[in-house]
């Protein structure tokens, strides 16, 4: 199990976590649902070790083993689609790039640069890169923003076949309906409903 215990965090006057605790399963797809700005992204960032809480601790997760999908694509304009994947894959696993491109339905775009991709394709590339990196768990912040529902559904089905827990933030009902469990949140400060 993954758990966060007694987290406290504020940015200036805004308190994001106030003695916040939560236990998450370390298998399957868990979706976090809540209004914008309630602290879902910050929770993922804390789990990934990208944001340090002022107090409290995270148990059952090693930040250096996670794969984090940022809310923004953060693509490199000077790298091709294929290079985005080979850049994060270790040398002995570079032949896996086509597999991740296929999962994100980007086969055929290997030589394209991010500027030539649509918004949805850019998001899928960022997701494919995160999946190629590999992690336990995958921490995905709005992975299907801008992706059409049918395609998002197929990619999520592919995600569920991975042998790693997935924790994702989403607002889309069609995504939430396919998750193994949903945790409803509200805030700030963040709290479980």
């Amino acid at each position: 199990m993954i758990s966060v215990e007694h987290l406290d965090l504020s940015f200036g006057d805004k308190q994001i976590f106030k003695d916040f605790s939560l236990t998450l399963p370390d298998y399957g797809v868990t979706a976090l649902r809540g209004p914008s700005g309630c602290g879902k992204t910050t929770l993922l960032r804390v789990l990934a070790g990208l944001t340090c809480p002022q107090s409290g601790r995270v148990v059952g997760i090693r930040p250096q083993n996670t794969a984090f999908l940022f809310q923004e694509n953060r693509l490199l304009p000077w790298r091709t689609v294929e290079q985005h994947l080979t850049d994060v894959l270790p040398r002995d696993r570079r032949n896996e790039a086509p597999r991740w491109l296929a999962l994100a339905e980007l086969t055929g775009e290997e030589k394209s640069y991010p500027a030539a991709l649509s918004g949805g394709m850019g998001r899928r590339l960022a997701l494919a890169r995160c999946l190629a990196l590999g992690g336990r768990p995958y921490l995905l912040d709005e992975p299907f923003a801008g992706v059409d529902p049918a395609r998002a559904g197929r990619i999520l089905a592919g995600l569920k076949t991975l042998d790693a827990p997935v924790l994702l933030v989403s607002h889309e009902e069609y995504i939430l309906s396919q998750a193994d469990r949903i945790i409803d949140l509200d805030g700030p400060p963040l709290r479980v409903l």
């Binding site: 990934a48 990208l50 250096q64 984090f68 940022f70 923004e72 953060r74 490199l76 000077w78 790298r79 850049d87 994060v88 890169r129 990196l133």
Partner: peptide
């Protein structure tokens, strides 16, 4: 800074960060 944070989150080594992010 978002790309630099990405390079840390994706465990790029310092030389790789220089080659793939700083130099371009």
């Amino acid at each position: 800074p978002q790309l630099l944070e990405f390079s840390r989150a994706y465990r790029f080594s310092p030389p790789k960060t220089v080659k793939l992010i700083y130099l371009p």
